[in-house]
């Protein structure tokens, strides 16, 4: 690790991020191909998802992503306290995503809409479940970044840069998952 990594080249995590995005793009293509085969099932099932909650979660992730984006230049300029506050804010806003996702899953399960209900709900649970795993990893990463910055650990800027890139990927994936799954019911 270089002593001053503020000007280091792009973190290696970018390989993981690109590969991960590529796999999701593939999942989306598969989803669209399967949708074309069972259009009615997908359109009817899409009417059972809560667009409002999906939209709120989109706004939550975008807000959280903006806060992380603000933390990066703050840390680069040596404003460590401000950077920590932005990360803390991103974590606090980001935590709401899990609450809303939990409400959504609860509503689905109560309505008897489970992973084996039909192919649409299979995709719904797989996509949102995979995204949720990414989200949990991202929240953990941001928490680690917060403490790395707090203690000024070696390579803390690289951690912040990598964490921010990862968190933006979590945003980006959701921005595609949201219309793909939630607007199926719209005609």
């Amino acid at each position: 690790m270089v002593a001053d990594d503020r000007h280091a080249k792009l973190p290696g995590i970018i390989v993981f991020i690109l590969a991960d995005i590529a796999s999701f793009v593939l999942f989306f293509i598969v989803f669209m191909a399967e949708r074309a085969k069972q259009l009615d099932v997908f359109v009817q099932s899409g009417q059972h998802v809560n667009v409002t909650l999906g939209l709120i979660n989109t706004l939550i992730l975008i807000t959280s992503g903006c806060l992380v984006a603000l933390a990066v230049p703050s840390a680069r300029n040596g404003q460590i306290i401000l950077a920590r506050r932005f990360i803390l804010g991103a974590l606090a806003v980001g935590a709401l995503f899990a609450v809303i996702k939990g409400v959504e899953y609860y509503q689905k399960i109560q309505a008897g809409l489970l992973v084996d209900t039909n192919l649409y709900f299979t995709f719904y649970y797989i996509f949102t479940g995979l995204h949720f795993v990414h989200y949990v990893v991202g929240m953990t990463l941001l928490t680690l970044v917060y403490f790395k910055i707090k203690h000024q650990s070696s390579g803390h800027f690289l951690w912040l840069h990598s964490g921010a890139l990862y968190w933006h990927m979590v945003d980006l994936l959701w921005i595609f998952i949201f219309p793909l799954l939630y607007f199926q019911g719209a005609r």
Binding site: G12, I13, I14, V15, F16, A19, D20, S23
Partner: peptide
Amino acid sequence: PHWVSWYVIWVGCM
């Protein structure tokens, strides 16, 4: 190389 390590981690996650 770190890019190999990240590829390895991605495969593990898949």
